[in-house]
Every structure is written in structure tokens, then in C-alpha cells.
């Protein structure tokens, strides 16, 4: 019998949770704020779903309800992606070591 593809995705999901567990514990506490802003930025990869929803198939009617929700989701996710990565960048730039005299 074949394995349901759902089980494959579930395996990826569970393994990623473990991976996340170990990776996040190794994050230094002083970078916890950038960690939150960058996780926020990457969770906006949900924009993938938004793009599919807005470009869904038919080109003759771009403004069906489902497309509109896709469009709205794109704006929200885009704010997060740019905002999240750039503010993280801005924060990380500030972390400096002591200057050796």
C-alpha cells in the first residue's frame, strides 16, 4: 500500500519542529528581539498562498471574491516581509563589539 502524501508532509512538519527547537535554543538571548522580527518576516511566506489565490486560473475575471481576498493577503504579507526583514537588518546593524584601542 502506498503512503499517503499527507504523512510525508506531516513528517516534514514534525521534523521541522524539532529542528526549530534546537536552532532556537542556540539563539543568543541578546538577539531575541531580532529573532521575533525575523520569524515574523519568514512566516509571511504565506504570500505564496496569497499569490495563488489572486492569480487563480481565469484571466477574464480578475476580481472574483476569492481573488480579492488574495489581493488583500498579498498587501498584508508584503508589509510584513519588507518591514520584518528591514527592521531586523536595522537592528542587527546596531550590535557592535567593543572597539579595541
Amino acid at each position: 500500500m502506498e503512503i499517503d502524501p499527507f504523512i510525508f508532509r506531516l513528517s516534514i512538519f514534525i521534523l521541522s519542529i524539532f529542528l526549530g527547537y534546537y536552532v532556537v535554543w542556540s539563539v543568543t538571548p541578546s538577539l531575541h528581539t531580532p529573532l521575533m522580527s525575523v520569524t515574523n518576516a519568514i512566516s509571511s511566506v504565506i504570500i505564496v498562498g496569497a499569490i495563488i489565490a489572486s492569480l487563480s486560473g481565469v484571466s477574464e475575471n480578475t476580481f472574483e471574491v476569492s481573488n480579492i481576498f488574495g489581493f488583500l493577503a498579498i498587501i498584508l504579507a508584503a508589509v510584513n516581509i519588507f518591514g520584518g526583514f528591514l527592521v531586523t537588518q536595522r537592528m542587527l546593524k546596531m550590535y557592535k563589539k567593543k572597539k579595541k584601542k
Binding site: R9, I12, S16, L19, G20, Y21, T39, N40, V45
Partner: peptide, 12 residues
Amino acid sequence: ALIITGALVGSS
């Protein structure tokens, strides 16, 4: 990509 990211962010 979404599944991996979701799991990472969730556990973080």
C-alpha cells in the same frame, strides 16, 4: 516552504 517555516516559527 510554508510547513517548514510554520513549524520553525511555532516552536521559536
